[in-house]
């Protein structure tokens, strides 16, 4: 009886923590995604030029997605800088045509195309690149997407949000396959390279 109780208890711990590896929601989410890729729902987006695009229309490219809002006084400047670095690294490896970088706004009411454009200009004077800052045209659709992906943002009490800054990698079939710290560019580019190679050779990448 005692042995059964101990085993059940350990099993519950094992299940909850993904084998004693995930003690927070974010680490659990990352492990879960890495083992069970998640189909990203389609969202109608508007970019910094005001052009509309369906997220689904980007199938066939690897997507590097992060979530920002242009009024963000802290982390979004940093993640923008990291994305512009990543963009240069992609250029060096001539990946730019097969990869798209998307910064999706968490504040679509405020982040008009003009605001998105100004945000992009903070990091590069070239706007027509593989990197787009976009906002969901229908805010509810954007929230639904964040909810499905497990991206949480909460009011920070001074008019902005505390939010998830991680880099989300979506494969060519539209599945979220990896979530990586925003400043881990080395790992990000390694995994992108593997995804592109897998598409080329038809081998399934294992993350």
């Amino acid at each position: 009886m005692t042995v059964v109780a101990v085993s059940l208890g350990l099993l519950a711990w094992w299940q909850t923590t993904q084998g004693f590896r995930a003690f927070t929601w974010e680490s659990y989410r990352r492990l879960k995604i890495a083992s069970h890729p998640l189909a990203v729902p389609n969202v109608l987006l508007q970019d910094q030029f005001g052009h509309l695009l369906d997220l689904n229309s980007l199938r066939g490219k690897v997507l590097v997605i992060n979530f920002i809002y242009t009024r963000c006084p802290t982390i979004c400047g940093y993640t923008g800088l990291n994305l512009s670095r990543l963009q240069r690294m992609l250029l060096q490896r001539s990946f730019q045509d097969r990869v798209r970088l998307l910064s999706i706004s968490l504040d679509p009411h405020f982040d008009t195309p003009q605001k998105l454009k100004a945000y992009m200009l903070r990091f590069s004077n070239q706007l027509k690149t593989s990197w787009q800052a976009v906002r969901p045209v229908k805010p509810l659709q954007g929230q639904e997407m964040q909810h499905q992906l497990g991206v949480v943002s909460i009011p920070d009490g001074i008019g902005g949000f505390t939010h998830n800054a991680a880099t989300h990698l979506v494969d060519q079939k539209g599945y979220l396959v990896r979530i990586i710290d925003e400043d881990n560019l080395k790992l990000t580019i390694d995994i992108i390279a593997r995804m592109l190679l897998a598409a080329k050779t038809g081998i399934n990448h294992d993350g």
Binding site: M1, T2, V4, A5, V6, L8, G9, L10, A12, W13, T16, T17, A22, F23, T24, W25, S27, Y28
Partner: peptide, 18 residues
């Protein structure tokens, strides 16, 4: 013993931020 173990495991699990 089983009752104690159940409550200890349950309470400890709920201390996880996850």
């Amino acid at each position: 013993i089983s009752l104690l173990l159940y409550s200890l495991f349950t309470i400890s699990l709920w201390m996880l931020p996850r």
